[in-house]
Write a protein that binds this DNA or RNA. Structure first.
Length: 188
DNA sequence: ACGATGATGAAC
DNA sequence: TTCATCATCGTA
């Protein structure tokens, strides 16, 4: 089973999308080569009131993709050198997105974009095969007991929002890191 | 523990 | 126009 996720997957509440992205595959096609990576760690950024979100101070040129329809990429430069990859979620007009913080064998949001050669050229583009970057369901089921939650990384300035457990990760991430076949999932 | 490195947004 | 800040990482 190999099915590219459609907009209806991303149009759901942001926390649900974040949780369900674990165990899906981030797929990159570039220069005739296609690579797929198991998604192992994500963070949700949910609405205007979320003080950790770029959308907290309203719509700007940078965060405009977050306010648009779900299933598009929101990519921006952080600390002057790192690209951050997010996928827009929720209804159109509601600013929300999920940050891809880790994939199998690649730990950390800046390393993910570096490994997959992602930069602003994909920003605001739809997550479909045609754009060269999309997400696939490959039939794995990730049960709740294999998922960990924690506060988000690097958002200590966000007050009570910094403490919300909006980060989701696969508990056996370390196994994946060492290149060992992961056992977190069960074939459908 | 800290410097790299530049876009962003808010203040002036 | 200036300035502080920043959804991080590599080196020490």
């Amino acid at each position: 089973m190999r099915r590219a996720l459609k907009n209806d997957f991303f149009e759901r509440p942001t926390l649900a999308v974040a949780r369900d992205l674990l165990g899906k595959y981030l797929v990159r096609r570039k220069g005739g080569k296609t690579e797929a990576f198991l998604i192992t760690e994500v963070e949700a950024y949910d609405g205007w009131h979320d003080r950790a979100s770029h959308a907290h101070r309203g719509e700007t040129e940078r965060n405009a993709p977050m306010f648009r329809s779900a299933g598009r990429w929101y990519i921006y430069l952080c600390y002057g050198m790192h690209w951050m990859l997010n996928v827009v979620t929720g209804p159109s007009g509601y600013p929300a997105a999920v940050l891809i913080r880790g994939v199998e064998g690649v730990n950390g949001p800046a390393r993910v974009t570096k490994r997959l050669s992602i930069n602003r050229t994909q920003n605001d583009k739809p997550a479909v095969l045609r754009s060269g970057l999309w997400v696939e369901d490959r039939g794995f089921i990730v049960s709740s007991r294999l998922i960990g939650r924690s506060p988000r990384i690097g958002v200590d300035y966000a007050g009570e929002w910094a403490r919300k457990k909006y980060r989701f990760f696969l508990k056996n991430h370390e196994l994946s890191l060492r290149g060992v076949t992961h056992r977190v999932t069960t074939k459908q």
